[in-house]
Write a protein that binds this DNA or RNA. Sequence first.
DNA 1: CTTTTGGTTCTGAATTAAAAGAACCAAACT
DNA 2: AGTTTGGTTCTTTTAATTCAGAACCAAAAG
Lengths: 168, 168
Amino acid sequence: MYLCTRNETSMIELSSEQLEIIQKMSVFQVRAGMPPTESRILALLLVSDRTELTFDEIRETLNTSKSAVSTALNTLVLRNKVESITIPGDRKRYFKHQLKNWNSNAKDGLHKLLSVNELLKEILAVRTSKTEDFNQDLRNVISFIDFMQVELVQVFDKWNKQQYIENN
Amino acid sequence: MYLCTRNETSMIELSSEQLEIIQKMSVFQVRAGMPPTESRILALLLVSDRTELTFDEIRETLNTSKSAVSTALNTLVLRNKVESITIPGDRKRYFKHQLKNWNSNAKDGLHKLLSVNELLKEILAVRTSKTEDFNQDLRNVISFIDFMQVELVQVFDKWNKQQYIENN
DNA sequence: CTTTTGGTTCTGAATTAAAAGAACCAAACT
DNA sequence: AGTTTGGTTCTTTTAATTCAGAACCAAAAG
């Protein structure tokens, strides 16, 4: 006979405020294109009093299937949104929001957005010369994006420098 | 008996390069969350030799249904991505890419992205004080976004000023 | 070596988003 | 007035996401 030392449920207790925030946050993320389960997991990891939750705690608290939680967590880990921690002597994995990566994720996202400029340059190269006004507008957009690219790098640098100073 | 003075087709002739760019551009936009038809219309309006196209030219060139083109164009106009021009004495509407708005659309988009900060501040206010490390990381993200908000406004200003100078 | 734990992977079902098709409508033309 | 044009709107079809449920599997525990 094997002992069952586990609790009946691993559901996390949440205040109504916490639940409400999970709701709002996930609506926000879903609108930005993230799938619902991923969004709710991220939101839960942000509001929960314990910052490292197990697979089962997430599953039970959000009342979702194992498969959905599994795939969502894996893509979140892949995208550096969540880190998975293992404690020696404990088989379970613990999942934690990767707040630290917010900065560099934002940077990557912006870079991807700005990479449209390569296509715009291709377009300019192929355009007829008959439409000078339009082409000039296009050139202007291209310079704007080039400008943003340069400036954003400086803004990120400025932030990093400022952080360095504050921590010394 | 009524004369049919219209052409058989209003399809726009496109080089293979132009077609290829439409393809690449729409893939890019779709990945950023824009519906396919909208993306292809925008791309077409960017590469086409004529910059103002009619409803039917768009429909035939992209080989899409009237309803799809209609709704896509209407949302594009609503979002200030496309402008619709009417020429007096011509019943058709002409549609043109709003390159001029790229700048301010970008600004709006970024602002929406950064508006997540209000939620993060709510979260911080509700969090337990037991998790000081995590809370500090969260505060750090919040300051980062606040910082970006301020800096981006300055970057946009700088661009506008620079443009003003160049044009005078 | 058997059982339990902590998941993963593989269907299928259900929901959602996108596009097509047809009916419709107002303005202009004859 | 009747027709054609230039679309719009509503309904149906199709395609793509998302999730659940069950089977499965490796590592650890008994």
